[in-house]
């Protein structure tokens, strides 16, 4: 059983030759055309302030950071699709927290901590930090400022857990040969609307503590534990040297090398 195709129904053979079309196209397109009758007017497009986050694979300042630090970004994918501006809320660890967070993010997302309300109005991301942690705790307390800002400007708060930046300025002065390990962990965004500021701040506190303490767990496990435990149990008081010791632990060897 077979259909009889017409004799001219032959497949296309031969290679398509390269063509130069640019000049002709440009000459044709530069002739202006008016709006056809009946076509609606073009909309005046204003400056788009609210853009959605789309993280590039890598960027210049992150590359620079990697020259000096063994830096890891965890959960940065949680930012994808969020409407900017954002309020980053991070734990205060050391003097370089702000600079490291800024450099780890692409230029369009880099937050400021100056005149934050005005910055948000202009579509720029902002960052707020916790207070200094009390003895025995890794994460200090958040004020209600991030929640107030998010509520006032109807934006999301992104919890950020920073580890490895404690006393980093002093560490960098040492004649060490290894790169200090720094981890920046982004958590699921917190939306304030429909909730009290205290409630949103408690959730934020909770998420940042989880990020700092349990960065290695999956988001779903963290979410479940957070709901199950209610409050995060602070770990046992740790001496300061232990924090530095843990933070500077050597990176495990990643696979065997051929040339050794």
């Amino acid at each position: 059983m077979s259909r009889k195709l017409p004799s001219w129904a032959q497949p296309r053979r031969g290679k398509q030759k390269p063509k130069f079309t640019w000049l002709r196209d440009v000459a044709r397109l530069l002739r202006t055309h008016g709006r056809p009758a009946g076509a609606p007017l073009a909309e005046r497009s204003g400056l788009e302030l609210a853009t959605r986050v789309q993280l590039p694979e890598g960027h210049f300042t992150l590359g620079l950071l990697r020259l000096r630090f063994d830096i890891e970004l965890v959960g940065a994918d949680a930012l994808t699709g969020l409407r900017q501006p954002l309020v980053f809320a991070a734990n205060e660890q050391g003097a370089l927290d702000y600079q490291i967070l800024r450099m780890a993010l692409p230029s369009r997302m880099r937050p400021t901590n100056l005149r934050v309300s005005r910055a948000l109005l202009r579509g720029r991301n902002v960052v707020t930090f916790t207070d200094d942690p009390q003895a025995g705790r890794l994460v200090g307390d958040f004020s209600t400022v991030p929640a107030e800002l998010a509520n006032q400007h109807n934006v999301a708060i992104v919890p950020v857990g920073l580890t490895g930046t404690f006393k980093l300025k002093d560490i960098l002065k040492l004649p060490i040969t290894t790169k200090p390990k720094v981890s920046i962990r982004f958590g699921a965004p917190v939306h304030v609307r429909g909730r009290s500021l205290t409630e949103a701040t408690a959730e934020l506190q909770d998420r940042v503590e989880q990020l700092v303490h349990e960065g290695e767990l999956t988001w779903w496990t963290v979410e479940q534990r957070r709901q199950g435990l209610g409050e995060v149990t602070p770990p046992n008081p740790t001496p300061r040297w232990r924090r530095l010791w843990d933070q500077s632990a050597p990176k495990p060897e990643d696979g065997s090398r051929i040339w050794r």
Partner: peptide, 12 residues
């Protein structure tokens, strides 16, 4: 538009 067309036509 002209650029995209040229790329497609220059490298079939």
């Amino acid at each position: 538009y002209a650029g995209a067309r040229q790329v497609i036509n220059a490298m079939p």
